[in-house]
Write a protein that binds this DNA or RNA. Structure first.
Lengths: 262, 262
DNA sequence: GAGTGGTCTAGACCACTGT
DNA sequence: CAGTGGTCTAGACCACTCC
């Protein structure tokens, strides 16, 4: 702890936690801080980088360093799966009117911009293991981006894989032009006689790759939640494997686990 | 992209992704890299910091910079809650033999070191909101650390809050000396007639605070998973609010959601 | 144009690791 | 002891923001 930049970081962190520096406040200029602490500017910058990595401050080029405000978060709940399953069998008109994302964000269909792209591919080692199928099995990869019309960054980066042979019975499922499909994935699967029985979701966290940071417009010093979702049908087949990347500072995932009564 | 340190980072990232630099490999010395790229050492260090923040490399003082190996992860599943509930009513002997952590890690009771501390406190704004009770309500705060005997860092940092008045009927519940309680929290609550009906878990991700990084021995460039767990009893009372911090690079959370049949 | 952060240099000295 | 990364300096020039 004899290190200068850590001492500076500690003092500033203290000020922020104690509320002497409030969210949105600008910190003194780096040159100013260097003078106050009797250190060089690069040393002060080392201290500020520590705070930025902790998510406490935000650097704005040409404007200054600011105490970061807590982000407003989107909640994603696992109750959505049952809701989607119920919706999958409603009338076309009812399904078209709203989707799971609209429901969770409280936004209207018109406020959301939806983008989908499909590509045919084959299972590599990881995907083959996830599906429990041999490598090289033909798959359909689907890429989704949904964002608020008012914002430029999407909520999430979604890649969904389906087993081609399982859905080939309905050629409409192979064409991205049919997106957004009214009723979502479970409605799509229902057209080829697949009923989803349960969904397993695996969650981890890590720093974003540069590509993810770019696409989700993540400031440095944020993490991503990585969700790997597996859908299993009533015949115990793995019918969908999805990979979802969510901004950690904007997303809260809510899982409700009901327990059997004594 | 005209920036020198980004170009250096890109080239090294490329080498790692392409497999020219394998996990565990040592990178050339910083001075060596500076010479190769025709830049100063601090500029090379800027590039290496980028890669460290992405979790791609690990710096080891006096030894070198190394390509990081993927960590072996612990899986934490929501099926544990039903398992714990079932176990809560088994015989004392059966409950004492094993716990949820042992079950998930596949380790023996003797391989795990358990630490608990209790403190009486009152609800601040956040906790009061979480419990749906007035501020100042007396609470019991319980702090848990569990770690592998072979390792020095705990799996998780757990803080659990109970409403004091709900558990006061059994004074044994107020004394940390009775930990580890055979059968866990649900067994404890059952002694005062509380049956947990459902559990809600909220998950977010963020960079660790310095204190968390220290205690969990997190290398720079890792994230933590933050789990806020709420236990609701059969009379719709919130009986426990827990705050769990998990190392993002070592932990996978698995949630299974069963769906009703059509 | 004044003020701010972003990048970069060239070199110093310290602390840690392994032989 | 040699080699490595960790810290720090003093100053230069560029890029961005706002008036």
């Amino acid at each position: 702890m004899a290190v200068a930049y850590e001492r500076i970081a500690d003092q500033l962190r203290q000020s922020i936690r104690a509320g002497q520096l409030m969210p949105g406040d600008r910190l003194p200029a780096e040159a100013k801080l260097a003078e106050e602490f009797g250190r060089s500017v690069p040393t002060v910058r080392d201290a500020l980088r520590v705070l930025r990595d902790e998510g406490l401050i935000e650097k704005q080029h040409g404007r200054g360093n600011f105490v970061r405000r807590p982000r407003t978060t989107t909640v994603r709940t696992n109750l959505r799966h049952q809701w989607e399953k119920n919706r999958a069998r409603r009338s076309l008109e009812e399904r078209a009117r709203t989707g799971a994302t609209e429901r969770e964000t409280g936004l209207d269909v018109d406020d959301l911009i939806f983008h989908a792209a499909y590509r045919e591919t084959t299972a590599d080692g990881d995907l083959a293991a996830a599906f429990g199928l041999p490598e090289g099995t033909p798959l359909l990869a689907r890429f989704y981006r949904t964002r608020c019309a008012a914002e430029s960054a999407p909520f999430s980066l979604v890649t969904s894989y389906l087993v081609r042979d399982l859905i080939a019975g309905n050629p409409a499922l192979l064409d991205a032009a049919n997106e957004p499909w009214p009723g979502g994935s479970q409605a799509q699967l229902s057209t080829v006689g697949i009923e989803v029985d349960r969904i397993e979701e695996r969650v981890t966290a890590r720093p974003p790759t540069p590509e993810e940071a770019e696409e989700l417009e993540l400031p440095p010093g944020t993490s991503v939640l990585v969700l790997r979702k597996t859908s299993i049908d009533t015949r115990d087949r793995i019918v969908d494997v999805s990979h979802v990347v969510l901004p950690g500072d904007r997303t809260e995932m809510l899982f409700t686990t009901p327990l059997e009564r004594w």
